[in-house]
Nucleic acid binder design. Structure first.
Lengths: 147, 147
DNA sequence: CCGGATCCGTTTCGATACTG
DNA sequence: CAGTATCGAAACGGATCCGG
């Protein structure tokens, strides 16, 4: 292909979101591990401290990556869910997971996405769309179980 | 699509590389802006401090993302180039650039990848392959101008 | 128990100035 | 050109505390 891709514009602003390890971790916890409460997030294998979790959740809310709500019948538990903007990070999370899978076999036995890797390579857009729609359906079910 | 994607394995190790804003910036400078010396990197619009640049380049060398060489006829200028491992971050850089383009129009007028975005969406794999092969050809030319 | 907030010692960052 | 040195600011992390 005859093609010359150049991008000389700084990306530092984007990196406030995308270059922040904890933000990426939290999006991954919500999107790929199905976690949506403070405690389930802090209990993940990522080992995030509570003060950091508090700070990052607040930050992400400010960036409009996530939304914080409560269930009508439960006044104490906060439900965190990804906004459309947050979900727009899905391709990045996918690439991140693929990269981990390809380069960190030595660190972790497997990322447990095993044969999923083939699927992603075969129908990338389909997988991304499926992840998003299934996430939305699930969160809708949690926040609005009656309908 | 009937599909349930889950990844419960921690990605923190990957984030030592991918969650580090400066590493991503540097890869982008090398890959998309064609910079390969210390000074040209520090003079980019990303505004990276010299001590940070030094530290990150050293780190990336340790991670085997980049290689540091000198031209035979120039003993003072270091030539930094991406290894295969470093180039494997290309899809991530692409996603990062796309995300910036989609969400930071307010910060920067444009990322100057304009209609390239369509091209990426149309032939993602082709664009990635092209970027890599053109990078390799260019660096080979710089490091080995005679052949 | 859940969902944080606060304190505090340690590490890292980042801007500027300076050097071989 | 390619870094060091310095130093204040910010981030991290862990432990603990607190209101519901």
């Amino acid at each position: 292909m005859e093609y010359n891709f150049r991008c000389t514009c700084p990306i530092t602003s984007a990196l406030d979101v995308v270059g922040d390890r904890w933000i990426l971790v939290i999006v991954k916890l919500m999107l790929l591990e199905g976690r949506y409460t403070f405690n389930t997030m802090k209990e993940s294998d990522e080992g995030i401290a509570t003060n950091i979790l508090t700070a990052k959740l607040k930050l992400m809310e400010g960036y409009e990556l996530i939304r914080k709500e409560k269930l009508p019948n439960n006044k104490k538990t906060n439900i965190y869910s990804l906004t459309d903007r947050g979900l727009s990070l899905t391709p990045l999370i996918i690439e991140l997971t693929l990269w981990s899978d390809a380069h960190l076999k030595d660190v972790h036995d497997t990322l447990k996405i095993g044969n999923e890797v083939e699927l992603i390579n075969h129908d990338r857009e389909g997988v991304i769309a499926a992840i998003k729609s299934q996430y939305l359906a699930k969160m809708k079910d949690i926040l609005n179980p009656d309908t």
